[in-house]
């Protein structure tokens, strides 16, 4: 198909193999420099503020600074999964190839944020709880979310036919999305039932404004970072697909 296919509205039954994602690429190219620049600024200012400007916690000391990475990472873990679910719904309903691509490209990113949240949570736990891992409700739910991401990534690559993997992954993402609040709720429930007496529970401290603004800035930085890398991944996936299609054309030689 030629560029006509690109002008088709999403959902039209064009032959997607050659659907020209030119519009998306132009948009991505226009947005990417801004995204990347703002990411760098937000993260640089946010990190500086978090490490040097914000005060240490009177109870937790300097280790409270881990929160400036841990909390935004945990936010992003949920945010990325929401993005995947929305993109998957769009892919299933309108069969839009770019939505498919977005869901598939977001999944490893979300998994990385989830891993970061787990790792920083564990680092934070050592001085606070005296052990690297506690079956705390929040950490445990994030751990389950991490496995949801792994499942999504595994199934999208499990088929010879990439289209089959995309559709299976989209269905799984929606099923997982419905289950996330259920899992979260039941893990909280489980945790309150088995409250271990020996562990002192220290949650996120009530936040003073001097701690809040660096935290929010880090959150913005993480979000921008997510979109920057997502666009880059989608671009490279598209180019890889183009390469595959061109190679297939030369093999067919028709």
């Amino acid at each position: 198909m030629t560029s006509q296919a690109a002008s088709n509205p999403p959902g039209s039954r064009s032959l997607h193999r050659f659907a020209n994602p030119g519009r998306f690429l132009r948009l991505a190219d226009a947005v990417l420099p801004w995204c990347a620049g703002l990411t760098a600024i937000a993260l640089a200012v946010g990190l500086a503020a978090a490490l040097f400007v914000a005060p240490a916690d009177y109870q937790q000391g300097e280790s409270v600074r881990i929160m400036y990475v841990h909390v935004p990472a945990a936010w992003m873990a949920l945010f990325a999964y929401t993005c995947i679910a929305v993109a998957s719904a769009a892919a299933l309903i309108w069969r839009h190839p770019v939505a498919d691509l977005a869901a598939r490209s977001a999944s490893p990113l979300g998994a990385a944020f989830t891993f970061l949240a787990l790792a920083t949570g564990s680092l934070w736990g050592k001085p606070m709880w005296g052990t690297w891992w506690v079956w705390d409700a929040r950490l445990t739910s994030v751990l389950v979310l991490f496995f949801l991401y792994l499942g999504h990534m595994a199934i999208s690559n499990a088929f010879e036919d990439p289209g089959r993997g995309r559709k299976a992954a989209a269905i799984l993402a929606l099923v997982g999305f419905v289950n996330v609040p259920i899992i979260k709720f039941s893990v909280d429930w489980w945790n309150t039932l088995h409250q271990p007496a020996s562990v002192t529970r220290i949650g996120v401290p009530t936040i003073h404004p001097s701690m809040l603004w660096p935290l929010l800035l880090m959150g913005v930085g993480f979000t921008l970072f997510f979109f920057t890398v997502l666009l880059l991944r989608m671009k490279s996936e598209l180019l890889a697909a183009r390469l595959r299609n061109l190679r297939m054309l030369s093999v067919e030689g028709r």
């Binding site: 198909m1 020209n20 061109l246 054309l249």
Partner: peptide, 12 residues
């Protein structure tokens, strides 16, 4: 009924 062979420039 082969599918039209596209111009490589237009292939995506």
């Amino acid at each position: 009924y082969p599918p039209a062979r596209p111009d490589p420039e237009d292939v995506w």
